[in-house]
Design a protein around this nucleic acid. Structure first.
Ligand SMILES: [Mn+2]
Ligand SMILES: [Mn+2]
Ligand SMILES: [Mn+2]
Ligand SMILES: [Mn+2]
Lengths: 218, 218
DNA sequence: AAATATTTTTACCCTTGTCTAAAAATTAAG
DNA sequence: CTTAATTTTTAGACAAGGGTAAAAATATTT
């Protein structure tokens, strides 16, 4: 139905809308997609023709309901495949994203319906991100960044903001994964660094780490 | 590494080489790929540049060892995914081919290695076709067409030649699948039709059916 | 309010893979 | 051994998607 390139644009715009709360600029899309602004303009005009997004010259774009639905479905497929790769093929969570970038474009509603069932209809992917349902609706949970927590607060790791291999590998080394309980033992206001407890280990983390870990506090 | 189009050409040529035992003509490729001979000429010249096949103007093509290896790997992926779809997602054997046509182009050796293991390293796909190993080698079994069998011979269904939805659905209706035991009760020389026994059922089949069913006789 | 800087668009070119129409080579008939 | 039919290749064109360089619009300073 839609080309690989079109799906990737819609997905990128979907994510940017949620990150920046509002219109998405041409340059932001170009940067996210690692392409040139002129290419983005072309594609955005094409997608506007197809009523997948609204576009006014020089003003940026917003997905239409149908554009948003398609984007959410690509994301649904991406995250379901990530679950498959980790749960069934025993991939490590830092290895699955690039493969899912390919698998997310396989077109077959029946395949996704069966894959979902096979995986037990998971609500979250291996990185803690919610999996949209087949209508494109997402359960948004109230989570916050570890960096927003105060001293002595406890939380459960529910996701990562950044998901580069380096970061995920760091988390592994520290034995932090989805579901891990974390307690803030100390917080330095000058640089935002923290001392935290994970299981029986206590260690120092920089603000950069704390700003990329989502936790759910109780 | 190679584009979707390139992989599809190599795969088609691989199959045609095996069917026609020898050089593959431009028109044969065009027909198989549902494209025009002029397009084939272009692509074949490009693939020859890359040493994936040997090509002499007006003479047809033959895969080189590296071209054959790539083709076999695409076929390996296709058939492994077919096994996955049938064994794990409970698809019916007549539904999996079109989906596998997409999945066969996913690029990740690690993915295929793990998928293979997850499936128990199967030797055959749901249609009875052999799955090439990771080096591109295929176990060719001695099978023959049911139409070549004589009266009173017994055999086990090991594959299908044609694999259209219509044919596979016909086989289902007759309760014939891979592993089914078949006995030839009678054979009409005039039109090649047969009466066969499958389980406790006995029925008539046309030559067209008998020519598209592979059996292994003992 | 100008002048500058930044962002976005336009105009034009490139590559991949496809098609149509015409030319060339090969094969089949007479 | 010519002529006719068939197959294959070449010569353009085109659509998708992406890139460069320059023009136009918008945003930011002075
Ligand atoms: Mn991902
Ligand atoms: Mn993810
Ligand atoms: Mn198949
Ligand atoms: Mn098959």
């Amino acid at each position: 139905m839609f080309s690989l390139a079109e799906e990737n644009y819609l997905k990128a715009i979907y994510h940017l809308e949620h990150e920046n709360q509002g219109e998405v600029s041409t340059n932001a899309i170009a940067e996210r997609m690692d392409t040139k602004p002129s290419s983005v303009t072309d594609m955005v005009q094409k997608l506007a023709e197809k009523d997948l997004l609204s576009y006014k010259k020089y003003k940026g774009t917003l997905l239409t309901p149908s554009g948003r639905k398609i984007a959410a479905n690509v994301i649904r497929k991406h995250r379901l495949w990530e679950v498959f790769l980790v749960e069934k093929l025993n991939f490590h969570w830092d290895e699955v994203h690039v493969i899912a970038e390919q698998l997310e474009h396989i077109q077959s509603d029946e395949l996704i319906a069966r894959l979902d069932k096979f995986l037990g209809s998971p609500d979250f992917d291996p990185h803690g991100d919610p999996i949209p349902d087949k209508h494109g609706n997402v359960k948004r949970t109230e989570k916050k960044l570890l960096s927003e927590c105060e001293k002595n607060q406890r939380g459960v790791c529910v996701g990562v903001k950044e998901s580069s291999g380096e970061f995920l590998q760091y988390l592994d080394k520290r034995k932090i994964s989805i579901g891990t309980k974390i307690k803030v033992l100390g917080k330095e206001f000058f640089d935002g660094s923290m001392i935290i407890q994970v299981g029986s280990d206590q260690f120092f983390i920089s603000q950069k780490i704390a700003e990329n870990l989502y936790v759910q506090t109780n």
